[in-house]
Nucleic acid binder design. Structure first.
Lengths: 159, 159
DNA sequence: TATTATGTTCAGTATAAACTAAATATTTTT
DNA sequence: AAAAATATTTAGTTTATACTGAACATAATA
């Protein structure tokens, strides 16, 4: 298996990751960047590394890296002696993703609260739908953080 | 507080839900339907109820209800004596949403497996990024189903 | 079977988002 | 300070998707 074949496999891998990311509603190029940063060597890649390997515009790299930094998946690194900004997957990125999820869970709990408040004025109207929703997201809000802590203790206690 | 005010509040509520849903990457109208079905009276609404209250086209209602039925959030109901199809929020909808999440978690675990496989051929290349990802999604895959079961037992054991 | 009510599909339009290329700004080196 | 390298912003294009209206299909009633 030549190095060239491995490179092709990596490109293929990048495609698959970008497809997954795209399905989840995020821009394709953000997925390409994530995919490439998972398998590149070294794990830190410069702005122009990304432009060249992914064959996309500078504008896209600029925007998508900003978005990914913002959402906590990657981080900027300055390498000694290197001029360009470098990017890499952030340690604990995947835990952070789940922690971000908690925010939308919170929104869903809140909206169910709001709905129940409105229905309070209509005694005849069924409230079970919203009560169930409310219970579920309350449960999630209570238990997911515990689970995350459990994971962190298992895997990050050295950090 | 008049019934008319309550109706306005419900419309406002529908807007908020549809905004939330839209942010998560799904069509606005699917969010409007979900929002309306959370607070309407009765909880079952006909095809034309949806068209009228949400002021959208029949085509959209047809497409979006199909999508929502498909994804397990709502269900079709036939009411005795009623001609039209009716829709309502499905019991356990929110649990189902989380269970669907498990599928994408599985995809992410698989993709990290795949990445690691590729990197096996390059002994010098850092694997910690993918190992961490892999560990995390394995953990999620193992523990989330347990959590879901716990919730179901707490709230659905009568079903 | 003819008529009416109901729901789906399809073609076209509108809207929004991704993406690029180029201009501009910023930072680094000489 | 000038020049070169690097990154961001902007305007415009492309592409994708949501959405509508109308034609079509299906099912129910008369």
């Amino acid at each position: 298996m030549s190095a060239d074949d491995t490179y092709k496999q990596k490109k293929q891998f990048v495609e698959e990751v970008s497809l997954l990311i795209e399905e989840s509603g995020k821009p394709r190029i953000s997925g390409q960047i994530m995919g490439w940063l998972m398998v590149c060597d070294p794990p830190e890649q410069s702005f122009s590394d990304l432009v060249e390997h992914l064959e996309v515009s500078k504008g896209s790299v600029s925007n998508m890296t900003r978005m990914l930094v913002q959402s906590g998946l990657i981080e900027k690194v300055r390498l000694p002696g290197e001029r360009q900004i470098h990017f890499r997957i952030k340690e604990g990125a995947w835990v952070d993703v789940l922690e971000k999820e908690l925010e939308s869970i919170n929104s869903l709990k809140n909206i169910s609260d709001k709905g129940l408040k409105i229905l309070k004025k209509e005694p005849g109207t069924d409230k079970s739908r919203l009560k169930e929703m409310n219970k579920f997201y309350k449960f999630a809000e209570k238990n997911l953080p515990r689970l995350i802590e459990e994971y962190k203790e298992e895997h990050f206690d050295q950090v």
